[in-house]
Design a protein around this nucleic acid. Structure first.
Lengths: 234, 234
DNA sequence: TTTTATATGTGAATCTTCTCACATAAATGC
DNA sequence: GCATTTATGTGAGAAGATTCACATATAAAA
């Protein structure tokens, strides 16, 4: 039986594909190479610089419809341009940031967003006076959320509010038309199926490193293990 | 030909396994359920709460050697204890944080680390006086790095320095015995094979959301598309 | 105590991602 | 201009992750 979709709120299993993450790597690498004056790269150039295999680089490009020149590699400039298009980086993206605690304040001052055409047009807090002095971006009370979202046609929000109010704020954001959320609160948000949520959990990031470090040290540090020589990449 | 491994510096393809990420989800969920007074859960309880399938939950548990009671589900308390062991959360973990810019300052104030037995014992900056007033944790100059790492037996570091000095600082950390790095600088660090690096790239996190939002809106918002009804989870 | 109902744990099947391998195209050399 | 070299692009095969399915085991019911 087929029926129309509701705007059912649910936890959507939303995972950023590894291939997309790798494309970001390649791009970061290309930006650096471009600054160094490099005009042309090969799949193995990017592979060496990013720690993946050359095959993988080409397969990833293939997935995203990026083509190079047979035998000639890829023009750095051209490659970057194609990526700009894929990631809609040619146009500006307006963002709102909710929650001006420590993390919110730091994010509002993070200059790299602007460098990549992502502008936090306004920040919000239940107590807008709290960080007003220290912030470079206007801090509004939550009451003005709808107005700003409409005015700047904002589609993506950064959520840096305390765990306890995260769901509530997310609901509000979605009601006002937000379609994507980068969520720094350690909660799984329940959202309609057409809203994208990307959770950034700082504790988890740390804990997984601790986990792998322990695991690695148990394998005896590799110090005395004879293994096949691997090509030196540095 | 087999030869002993060098401490070759290279970019290691280090990706946190999805199964590990999911285990973190389950745990967060269990902590919440425990607070609510829940004593026992079933695989489908966790599944519903985390947006994965019940099969997946059981397979993940199986991978990490977690066993429940046939027909009886899992004791919340017992499950959490097993996870504590797996993640070495029963003992304290001392960390150092390098770079007291905006992000570093925010991280140094992030109370959740302490709640999970992760203590930032000291922070470092080339200009230790910069944030001294605002910080709750001692801010040292880089010169005292070795001393502190040794004294507190630190194995994991948080790197929040500017891109330009990230590699240099990482080299130093590793020379002083650091085995795991959570790197907030948008650079791929080149490290020996026995060092774990987890990159947290805030721009990438945002950009991938923007990418998926665009993609989703292109599929026309799902608004008028007839699709199979999905179980409401909320 | 015996029966029944139900949730686990895990092989087998499927689906996805990655690696391999090679045909192909195009620069370079002769 | 022809031969040769070399990097691309992509099917095919391998590896890995997820889902399915069912044989347990056991808690609850009778």
């Amino acid at each position: 039986m087929k029926i129309k979709i509701f705007d059912v709120k649910q936890i959507t299993k939303y995972v950023i594909k590894n291939s997309l993450k790798r494309i970001f790597l390649y791009r970061a690498c290309l930006v650096r190479l471009k600054l160094m004056g490099v005009k042309k790269v090969f799949s193995y150039t990017l592979a060496n610089e990013t720690g993946v295999t050359a095959d993988q680089v080409r397969k990833d490009f293939s997935e995203f419809g990026i083509k190079g020149n047979k035998r000639g590699g890829y023009e750095v400039e051209e490659l970057l341009e194609k990526m700009e298009n894929i990631f809609h980086r040619n146009k500006d993206h307006n963002l709102v940031l909710i929650g001006m605690g420590n993390m919110g304040l730091a994010l509002s001052k993070y200059s790299r967003f602007v460098q990549r055409n992502m502008n936090i047009v306004a920040t919000f807090d239940i107590d807008p006076f709290k960080q007003k002095i220290r912030s470079d971006i206007p801090v509004y009370s939550m009451g003005r959320l709808k107005e700003i979202i409409d005015r700047f046609r904002v589609k993506v929000a950064i959520l840096a509010v305390p765990e306890i109010s995260a769901q509530e704020v997310a609901d509000e954001l979605i009601r006002f038309g937000i379609k994507g959320i980068v969520n720094f609160a350690p909660v799984l948000l329940k959202v309609p199926a057409d809203v994208v949520v990307n959770n950034v959990n700082l504790c988890d990031e740390l804990e997984s490193v601790i986990y792998y470090v322990h695991k690695m040290m148990k394998v005896d540090g590799l110090k005395n293990i004879e293994i096949l020589y691997r090509d030196m990449k540095y």
